[in-house]
Each structure stands twice: as C-alpha cells, then as structure tokens.
C-alpha cells in the first residue's frame, strides 16, 4: 500500500511538471507552420501529385521510415510465430456459433474486404492509406475466425503474400535509386492531381503496404488463435 502511495505521488508530480512545462512553452494552436511543414503544404502537390499531404510525407518524403516500420512489423510477426510455435492447444469445449452469426459473417466478409481495398486504392485522395486498410482486412478475417468453425486461411499463402509484398517494396525503392538517383524517388508520371491514376508511385506503394500489413496481421491473429 505504501508503495502504491509513493508511486502515485511521484507519477502525479511528473504529470504536474510535464503539464505546466507544456502549457507555458507550447501555447495551444498558436504556432504557425514553418520550415519543412510549410514546404510540404505549399509545394507537396506540385512535387508529388498527391492531394493528401500526409500520404506523400509517409510514403515519399519520409519513405525510409515507413520501410523501417514495415520491417519492424515483419520482425514482430516472425517473433510471435517463433514464440508461439511450440505451444499446445488445450482441448476445451468451445461454444458453437449460432446460425445468424455464421450467415451474417459469410455475407459481410466480402464487403469488409471491398472496403479495405477501397481505402488503400484511394489513399492519396482521401484519409486512410495502406496501414488502416490492411488492418480493416485483418479485422474481416478476425470476424471469420470468431464466427466460422472450419475457417482456416492457408499459412503458406499468407507468408508468400507477405514476402512478395516486402520484396516488391524494396524493388520500388531500388527503381528510384536506378532512375532518379534517390531511394524511393517518384519515378512514375504524376498525372492530374485529384484523380485515381495520379501521384506516381504513391498508390503502388500503398497497395503493396495494404497487402503486406493485411497478411501480417492476419498471420498474427491466426497464430494467437491456435495457441
């Protein structure tokens, strides 16, 4: 109990210091854009062709970070598979899914996949992009894991999709290095902004990321389900 009170005091003192420091030094909403942020907002559409500025920062201006992030995701999925590989499934009496759940999810599943596809194809025009799209697709698979008894995606196909998408991402980066002397450069034609076929390699990269994140998250869920 005394440890809890001490922890409470220390942590709330930390919070008080943090809040007063922030409130004095960073007045809310009164910092005009400058530096790189102003450049991205001002010139982003001319340079990369995407009307969603956040998208062009994530995939092109800071594209190397995103490649690292995808690598972290891959390592987490692999490590999880490695950790859970030897675990045995205990035989418990599982409740049967009802007929309503089974039928509803069977008809809902293609619509969820379609919605995920819509999000990653329109990533450079509307909010969204590859990461939420992949997670939406994985959530559709999660729904099927819960409601269908016999549903089991092929492990081989999942890891093949994941490796193929990862390799394709690096190849897109190397293509920029070969043609424009910069890793992940925008080498394809920009097109007319605010149409689907625009913004060069941004839609391609987001499609790749969508497939990769979707298969990785589905793999994580499948491993956790079997453990």
């Amino acid at each position: 109990m005394i440890r809890k009170i001490i922890a409470f005091l220390v942590v709330f003192y930390f919070g008080y210091i943090l809040y007063s420091f922030i409130a004095v030094n960073f007045p809310f909403g009164e910092r005009p854009l400058k530096g790189v942020a102003a450049h991205y907002v001002d010139k982003g559409i001319e340079e990369e062709g995407a009307t969603n500025i956040v998208t062009s920062i994530v995939t092109l201006y800071r594209g190397f970070d995103t490649l690292g992030e995808v690598t972290v995701l891959f390592l987490a999925a692999t490590g999880l598979g490695l950790l859970l590989a030897g675990m045995k499934e205990e035989e418990k009496e599982k409740p049967e899914p009802t007929l309503i759940m089974e039928t509803t999810t069977r008809y809902l599943f293609p619509l969820v996949l379609l919605f995920g596809t819509y999000i990653f194809i329109h990533g450079h025009l509307t909010p969204g992009g590859g990461f939420p799209a992949g997670v939406v697709i994985a959530t559709g698979y999660f729904m099927m894991f819960i409601a269908q008894k016999q549903f089991k995606p092929s492990e081989y196909l999942l890891s093949a999709t994941e490796s193929f998408a990862g390799t394709l991402y690096v190849i897109m980066g190397l293509l920029g290095l070969a043609l424009a002397f910069s890793f992940l450069a925008n080498v394809m034609p920009l097109g007319v902004p605010n149409t689907v076929f625009s913004a060069g390699i941004i839609p391609v990269i987001y499609i790749i990321i969508g497939f990769k994140v979707g298969s990785e998250m589905t793999g994580i869920l499948a491993h956790l389900k079997e453990a």
């Binding site: 910092r31 854009l33 942020a37 991205y40 956040v54 920062i57 994530v58 995103t66 995701l73 994580i220």
Partner: peptide
Amino acid sequence: VVDPVPQALVLTAIVIGVAEMA
C-alpha cells in the same frame, strides 16, 4: 492548415504500438 508532419509520425507510431503489443 494544421501541421502534417506530426500526423505522419503518429501514423507510424500507432502501427509500431500494435506490433509491440502482440
């Protein structure tokens, strides 16, 4: 327009968070 750079950073951080959680 609001600052787009923190949004891009946080977009990365959220996905890293779920990997760490798993």
